[in-house]
Amino acid sequence: MSKTNITCINCPMGCPLEITMENDIISVIGNKCNKGKEYAIREITNPTRIVTSTVKVNGGERPVVAIKTQDEIPKKLIFDVMKEINKVTINAPVNLGDIVIENVLNTNVNVIATANDKVK
């Protein structure tokens, strides 16, 4: 039997979660909603995160524009995804929701723009 204590990151409540694993059976206490339980199970089986950053823009009012992975990606890939993000330069205009990288590192997750940048 193994016990892990983590803080839920789903919302500002930041519930303290205690995860117990016994014979492949996972039980969670401390969560105040179902999202907390789902997070706890994911966290010890396949932890995932949303990555937010910026990419360079050519010809925009601003030199960079904010981006995010549209969904969560495996936590262990965060720095590899950052490398892909840092390779990219896009052209203005950029619209919120534009796809910046399709299916980044075969995660089935797109990197999308989260802000606008007009042509200078």
Binding site: P12, I50, T52, A66, K68, L96, T114, A115
Partner: peptide, 25 residues
């Protein structure tokens, strides 16, 4: 919010996690 590009905004108002620029937009 323009510079708060991380996510976690909007759970109470929109019921979803948005980045700062998405929330203000």
């Amino acid at each position: 919010l323009q510079q708060c590009i991380h996510n976690g905004f909007g759970l109470h108002i929109f019921g979803e996690q948005l980045t700062g620029p998405e929330y203000s937009e």
